[in-house]
Write a protein that binds this DNA or RNA. Structure first.
Lengths: 216, 216
DNA sequence: CCTACCGATCGGTAGG
DNA sequence: CCTACCGATCGGTAGG
């Protein structure tokens, strides 16, 4: 089957990610498996340090087969990053929806920090480090697609941060604080082990103690 | 000249980094130039995304010539990381030596944060991101050589952090705080532009406001 | 999805 | 340091 007539290479959110709607459920499953295996390898070895043959082997395929599902290695990276953002966003939305409308800014930030750390060491383990470091390998069109999701995710933190700032519990500028906080949290993947003496919830509590001033 | 009789490939701090003492000053300069050009390319494209040909071309050499100075691409990476740690350590030592013996823990941390950010956006611009992300490509022996320098650099932060903790100006555990703070600071390379409305000193002040509680 | 393959590139080396 | 080169690997493709 030639590239031009392959239905897996038509429309999609990410350019070249393929269109699940056209094919059957099994095809969608195989694509999902490729995304997860790729995420794992990209996290461990980086995008440039992972070959499409590595990914194919991890999914039990021959070397050329990933290109039946994704038009290029870069399109697969884009799908990995988009999936990662979807995981993080779904988790964050769930946490925000469950929160009381009367929650204080401090409680809001606590929930967001905890949710983010839980994604980092849970479902998003293989995806979040890729999201942090592999942007240079996306094309402009691919980057645009993922950046929109990322901006929305980060924007959800601003009400809590501006609220804390107004109350005098956060002395730095909310926008700058958000950058610093994401850096501190994302960096934990380099040193924190959730099976150690500190749990993820403990870690979230330590983070809150560092970022938020005690009430006067 | 065969590999075995080449004096540039004998003893060194980093395995395979070469021995400047054996050859003349010009040889040392060329090696330094390779290290700086490599740092720049590694920062921009990653270790795996940079070819030894790219590095050779940046230094005005032919493709095989870097291997006259370094026995492998990995040895060159090790030299880059070691040089980066040397830059950061020299700067930190200078700042600590200039500090009053009566400085408060807050003043000590302020000086360390400021020094670190100035290296990140100054002399160490091309080196620090490499130091943050390219560890997976070092051999165990190479990693060992660089980790020792890194541990010493980070250990110098503990007196300030434990001092603040004792005074009740830092509520999180000093060791955990140090990890969070390094993450927040190192992450700035992904978003902060020193030529914008905020200077590096402003940035250091914002960081201090975020990390350290106001005095009661 | 597999088979079989291509053109390009890469880290590294022998010899001078 | 350059020249000339090697063996291995890589992303991707035509055809079924």
């Amino acid at each position: 089957m030639s590239r031009a007539t392959n239905p897996a290479h038509t429309t999609a959110t990410c350019p070249g990610i393929g269109n699940p709607a056209v094919s059957g459920a099994t095809t969608t499953d195989r694509r999902e498996e490729l995304i997860h295996k790729a995420a794992h390898l990209f996290r461990a070895n980086g995008f440039k340090g992972t070959t499409t043959r590595d990914i194919a082997a991890a999914a039990g395929m021959q070397s050329g087969s990933p290109f039946y599902y994704f038009e290029s290695k870069g399109a697969l990276l884009c799908a990995v990053m988009q999936t990662g953002m979807a995981i993080a966003t779904a988790n964050q939305d769930r946490v925000l929806a469950a929160m009381s409308p009367h929650a204080t800014p401090r409680e809001q930030l606590q929930a967001l920090v905890s949710a983010h750390l839980h994604v980092l060491f849970g479902d998003g383990r293989d995806f979040m480090p890729v999201l942090a470091y592999e942007w240079p390998w996306l094309t402009d069109a691919q980057r645009q697609a993922v950046v929109a999701q990322k901006d929305a995710y980060e924007a959800a933190w601003m009400p809590a941060l501006t609220g804390l700032h107004r109350r005098g519990e956060l002395r730095s500028r909310p926008e700058v604080a958000r950058f610093f906080i994401f850096g501190a949290l994302n960096w934990t993947v380099h040193w924190f082990r959730p099976d150690g003496s500190l749990s993820v919830d403990d870690l979230a509590e330590e983070a809150m103690k560092l970022f938020v001033d005690r009430v006067a």
